[in-house]
Design a protein around this nucleic acid. Sequence first.
DNA 1: ATCAGTTGTTGGCACTGCCAACATCGACAG
DNA 2: CTGTCGATGTTGGCAGTGCCAACAACTGAT
Lengths: 150, 150
Amino acid sequence: MEHPPNPPARVANRPTWLISRTFARSAGLLAAGFEASGRGLRSYHYRLLAALEEFGPASQADLGRGTGIDRSDVTAALSELESRGLVVRSTDPKHKRRNIVTITPAGVAQLLELDQVIDDVQEQVLSPLTEAQRRQFITLMTKLLADETR
Amino acid sequence: MEHPPNPPARVANRPTWLISRTFARSAGLLAAGFEASGRGLRSYHYRLLAALEEFGPASQADLGRGTGIDRSDVTAALSELESRGLVVRSTDPKHKRRNIVTITPAGVAQLLELDQVIDDVQEQVLSPLTEAQRRQFITLMTKLLADETR
DNA sequence: ATCAGTTGTTGGCACTGCCAACATCGACAG
DNA sequence: CTGTCGATGTTGGCAGTGCCAACAACTGAT
């Protein structure tokens, strides 16, 4: 089997390197999971479907704000979801410049399927840790991210 | 100030999401640090300089293997380093198809400067954690990554 | 001499993140 | 009523990292 690279010590010993390798592992497994589910969906799609399912119909601008996805990318991803029948877009009668995006029953079904895929990935990513270590890991990341003024 | 997005619960509660946000924070700070250092260098450049400084002159193929950087990206990044006088490339007399890459004194100096920048980023990324929590965080990521057969 | 593998280069793609420019619409001030 | 500003959605593009294929040149084994 292929031997993973052994980076120089000054790289390997940096927390930012460990974070980037952890992310690469996680992202790789997610990408593989999305691909295996066979609908050509990816992270952006999932995040948008999840937001629509949880918060209800929303404008594209609100979707972008709520998910942190750039509104030009929201437009592109929604076009793909719409072409697959997973969302519908309609013009807001109260605001002709605004689209209201709604998840479809097929979109909800797809979302539940992806939930399973993503749950499996959580397990794969965290499998080297005990339950207590997993909670600790989550607590530490939450603390790292909590300071939003930085 | 701008309010960060609040993703739907099914996203926010997944460890892979926390890992991706932690990485985004870390990568953003690194990018800002590299840019502030003003030499147009980035992660690939640093990794290559670090490998050359630690392991000595190496072929491009060996550099790619050692750092995990695709050999086509090694070629591109070395061209940029060479144009800035930070490395030199010469043909291996024993193997005409192989380049031997060597870091220059200017490259070593640049590497030390970048070490400072990257050390500052470690501090910024980890500042919400206590010393004990930092050690724990590193231990957990190391454990997550240790199983290379996955 | 031939073949397989290695090395380095070129060109390209995918994904995520990001930005500018533009047209259209709505709200508001004058 | 008109002009201006901000919001919305779209289009086109870029950056960085990661990855791949195809190719030419070289090496080593047969």
